[in-house]
Design a protein around this nucleic acid. Structure first.
Lengths: 124, 124
DNA sequence: TTCTTGTATCGAAGAATGTCAACATAGACG
DNA sequence: CGTCTATGTTGACATTCTTCGATACAAGAA
C-alpha cells in the first residue's frame, strides 16, 4: 500500500497536487492508525527502542488498558504498515517499519520550490 | 497546540523517545484530522493551490457530499491547526498552515543517528 | 428594506471505533 | 500427555464519527 506513484511519477503528492480519491483512502487508513493516543504511544515506544524491537510484554503494562485492547491497537498499526511483528519462542516482538514513516514524512514535507511562503501575494 | 517541547528540549519526539500521554493525545487529534479521505483531499487541494488560498466554492463541488459536510470537515482541519480561513466579502478562503505540516514531517523524520536503518542487522 | 447566494451551525440517523470479558491459540516445561 | 504463560481473536456494548436535511448567519444586489 502507498506504493503507487503519484501523477508526478514520484510519490503520491499531498501538498503539491490534489490527492486522487483512491490514494486519499489509502493514505487515510495510515493516518487513522496514527489518530489514537494509545497507538501513537505504542508506535513511539516501538520506534524509540534502541534495538529496534519491543516485546509485547513490555508494552502492555505501560497502559491502563486490557491486554486484548493493546493487541488490537498493535494489529491496527501492523495493518497500516507502520510496524511488523515476529514471534520468537513465547514472546512476540514488534518493530518499526521505517519505510512507512519515511513516506509520511516525505508527504508532509513541502518542496523548496513551493510558493506557499507568501500566501498574501495577491498581486495576481 | 503541539507547541510544548518534548523531553529533549526541541520537539515532541515521536520516533526517538516514548511519547508522553498528554502529547500523544494532542498529536492524535491532528493525525485523526488527517485520517479521513475527504479531509486529506481537502487539505491537498488547499495546500497545492498556487496562490495559497482556495475558495470554499471551489472545494465543495469537487465532492459528492453536501455543503454542510464539507464545511464540517474544513472545521475539523481548522481545529487541528492544519488550515486557516478568512472571509473576504461573500466568499471564505482557506489556506494551509505550513507550520503544522512541517511539525508533523519533522516528527515522522527519524534523525540520522537513529540506528534503525538496519533493522535486520543481526551482526549484534 | 427584501431577495438571493455563500457558508456555518444544529439535530438526528447510521456507521465506525475503542474497550472489555471470555475464549482460542502458540509455545515452554514437566 | 497436561499445564502454565503469553498473545491473538471473538462478541458485545458504549462512544464517537460521518453524513444529511433544515435552519441560521453574512454579505452583496435590487
Amino acid at each position: 500500500m502507498l506504493g503507487q506513484d503519484g501523477p508526478d511519477g514520484c510519490c503520491p503528492a499531498l501538498l503539491t497536487a490534489p490527492l486522487e480519491t483512491d490514494q486519499a483512502e489509502t493514505l487515510a487508513k495510515v493516518f487513522k492508525a496514527l489518530g489514537d493516543p494509545v497507538r501513537l504511544r505504542l508506535l513511539s515506544m516501538i520506534a524509540s527502542r534502541a534495538g529496534g524491537e519491543v516485546c509485547v510484554c513490555d508494552l502492555t503494562p505501560a497502559f491502563d488498558l486490557s491486554q486484548p485492547t493493546i493487541s488490537h491497537h498493535l494489529k491496527l498499526l501492523k495493518q497500516a504498515g507502520l510496524i511488523d511483528s515476529e514471534r520468537r519462542g513465547t514472546w512476540v516482538y514488534y518493530r518499526l517499519l521505517p519505510e512507512m514513516t519515511d513516506r509520511l514524512a516525505a508527504l508532509l514535507t513541502r518542496p523548496a520550490e513551493a510558493p506557499l511562503t507568501e500566501p498574501a501575494g495577491a498581486a495576481s
